[in-house]
C-alpha cells in the first residue's frame, strides 16, 4: 500500500501512522455534553466504501493528512494536509 504525501510524494505505507476517521477533527466544545463527546471519540459510521481518515507521515515530514480512500478496494483517491484545511479557515 502506498500513499502520496502532499509534501513528500508517493511513499510506502510503512512511513505512515494511521489514527482513524476524520471525525477526530470535529472536537466538541468543553461543554458540548457526553453525547457529543461520545460521537467524537467513539461512534463511527465505519463505512464500507469511500471514507476520509487521518494519517500521520511519522517517518517523513510529520504532517497529518486527510486521506480519501476506499475501505473495500484500498484505492487511494486523494490526500491533503490537515494543516492546510485549518489555515484555509475551516473551523475545527
Amino acid at each position: 500500500m502506498r500513499l502520496t504525501c502532499p509534501l513528500c510524494g508517493p511513499r510506502d505505507r510503512r512511513e505512515f501512522y494511521y489514527y482513524g476517521s476524520e471525525d477526530y477533527l470535529q472536537r466538541p466544545g468543553p461543554d458540548a455534553g457526553p453525547e457529543a463527546w461520545d460521537d467524537h471519540l467513539h461512534l463511527r459510521d465505519n463505512i464500507a466504501g469511500e471514507v476520509r481518515d487521518l494519517w500521520y507521515h511519522e517517518t517523513g515530514c510529520s504532517q497529518w493528512l486527510i486521506v480519501t480512500r476506499n475501505t473495500v478496494t484500498h484505492e487511494i483517491l486523494s490526500t491533503e494536509l490537515v494543516a492546510d484545511r485549518k489555515k484555509k479557515g475551516v473551523r475545527a
Binding site: M1, D12, R13, V51, T71
Partner: peptide, 13 residues
Amino acid sequence: DFYASYAARGNLP
C-alpha cells in the same frame, strides 16, 4: 494492519 478496511486482506508491512 492498522488502517480501517473491509477488504479481508492485508499488505506487506
